[in-house]
Write a protein that binds this DNA or RNA. Sequence first.
RNA 1: GCCGGAAUGGCGGAAUGGUAGACGCAAUCGACUCAAAAUCGAUCGGAGGUGACUCCAUGAGAGUUCAAGUCUCUCUUCCGGCACCA
Length: 770
Amino acid sequence: MKKSLDMESYNHEDIEKKWQAQWQADGIYTVKDNVPGKENFYELVEFTYPSGNLHTGHWYAFAVPDIHARAKRMQGYNVLYPMGFDAFGLPAENAAIKLGADPKTWTYEQMEKMRVQLRSMGAMFDWSREVVTCDPEYYRWTQWMFNQFFAHDLVYRAITMVNWCPKDQTILANEQVVDGCCERCGTPVIQREQPQWMLRITKYADRLIDDLDNLDWPHAIKEAQKHWIGRSVGAEISFRIADHLQGISVFTTRADTIQGVTFVALAPEHPLVGELLPEITNVSAVSHYIETTKTKSELDRQQSKEKTGVRLEGVVAVNPMNNEEVPIWIADYVLAGYGTGAVMGVPMHDERDRAFAQAMGIAIIDQPLLDRDHVVKQVRGKIVKTYRLRDWGISRQRYWGTPIPIVYDLDGNAHPVPDEHLPWLLPTDVDHTPDGTAPLARSKELFERTEKIFGAGWKPEVETMDTFVDSSWYFYRYLDNHNGSAFAAKEKMDAWMPIDLYLGGAEHTTMHLLYSRFWNKALFDLGLVKESEPYKQRVNRGLILGPDGNKMSKSKGNVVNPDEIVGRLGADTVRMYLAFMGPYGTTANYPWDPNGVVGVRRFLERVWKLKQKIGKGAITAQLHKTIKKVTEDIAEYKFNTAVASMMTLVNEWERAPAILEGEYKTLLQLLAPFAPHITEALWQLCGETTSVHCSPWPLYNAALLVNEDRTIGVQINGKLRGEVTVAVSAPTEEIQKAALALPRIKEFLDGKTVKNVIVVPGRIVNIVCE
RNA sequence: GCCGGAAUGGCGGAAUGGUAGACGCAAUCGACUCAAAAUCGAUCGGAGGUGACUCCAUGAGAGUUCAAGUCUCUCUUCCGGCACCA
């Protein structure tokens, strides 16, 4: 007797193991490109680094959106919800170095571990479409696209000042520098001169701003991207240098203040400084200042807002508006990379100019403002747009990345590696320990390969690409991951693009999300893809914090290990608890509550036991309310309230003497996207022979909701004084009559004049009196 | 400093301008048990009252409205992003 009861209790371990295997055997999550009568829906989540350790954040990122994808599937869409690995890059490489292992071997081992962990989520990933960016089959097309861009002048070589992390021995993008320190290791970043391959993202600056308007994206991301690109419209005005033919071109958005100019300031790095050196009478002071600036790190320059500078003695500039002579200074508050690297100093109207003038004892004069357009015309300036955004430097002096497919001839000219030689393989005969030089420069095989194909004396490029390149187009490869003749077939892209919904972390706002939009626009301009924007809708999620409310970290000892909880309580419980914590799609962070997760487990056990109550019951309006609520909430990523409404239904059913089998099965369907395993098991126990996940989404009966009685509040002058229960569809006169007939209300109104009665059916009655 | 959010019980959170605190957690009491766990039942914003009830309450202050957590203005605090961008 006892034994059979045990066998009927909820055993998550057996159930999850059994159904994960069964689904795989049945191939129910294999996605076809076209299914007659079904609309395609492409739901994308940011793929992951194969760190080999799946943490709670991964569950939140992948298992909760899986709820949405599953519901969409049951609602009749042909849903693609793929997964892959962003497998090149520093984390993998550093781990490999630490363990003295080969990055490739290490990476593939971690991926295998992670596949097992990812499968434990019970998500509907179609693994046959998996994409791995370090696979030559993948990076062949990364290189091919690079070649396309090279051929169309979107790629160039430039000597740039780069952010250099001395610890990681690598170049960092501005986006990867946080407070002047390396985003990954926290080491202060220094400036270093470095030739590198650049992508002309600035050419797309206007479109990257303007095309945001048509996207269904959160306002905050749009604003952040606009600000990051930093378009500003102003004028370039030339100040003549006295006794010189040459002038200093300044950029200003305040041409109207030109009468108030009392100096001109150049960035210390400005090329004109060198040219003027012969005229300057205080060369040593100027040189000294330039040298000092060079030794200052970006961090120093950012932290110190004190204005410093040196006047260039012996030269003066002439204000083109009024021909007055003003001194020329160099100052490190003027940025070489923005505008023209030179400003006209107007202390009266610009805070920074005033601080500088005060520090240096420069005059501050108050002159009337002029008409902007008039000034620009008068001084023959030109209206220009300038951007904060810089071109994208993609070179990395690292081993574990996509090799840049460039070779150099005997004169040092760069040539792309012809497409027929792609993939241009990453050599394996290399000691990849970082020492500030490119590991590929040490590959005998790469140099021999280059000479063999291109001729004696030809040399290979030894840099690899930033991994943001790899992730700029991965969503196309899911559509056709084994295509050997194109990155993806046109008809497959037609079937799926653009991506209907892209869910991911807020940290990618100005990095991945901007880079991949640029990459897609470049492909679009080359006629390679049909959509100029890849992601129709974007939803950013927040973080899962440790139980103490802090970000999970090993040092704080607050890391929640999902494998342990899945083992103890089951994947269904973990998925559902993460969904229940709060609304998805806000960047709010939620602390993991070890007790809270138990509450969800209790709910699933109640659902399990509820099966015993199946018998003769009445059709309940509550079920139809729940169908409506769950359907609407999933569509808005409010999984927490969807779960709450199912809990309310179960609470009600537990109080009922019996429930109908059909209604119970409807609940299983509503619950299926959240808890795919237990619902499948119960569905089969109810005698079904096909998967609950292949069943159609329940529809609610609106008539049942309209006929329902509802208790509404009765207020007097806005204060609640009673309540009446009336049908939702009752006419207002009837509701008013019922409200005024309440004994308590009568008592309150005794001796008072009713001035107005407001009746909102289904909501409220408010009696206004004196 | 600028831009974008947010602020509701002990906690996570819920509320098309319409009964504030759904749902869950924790807590307290009770049932079951030799006992504990589990489970089930009850209570659960504050103050007052035996009680039916009354008053107060959604960061602070004003305003609009029959009615404000929700709309408007001012302020405070917190979170995220950017920051000498001319």
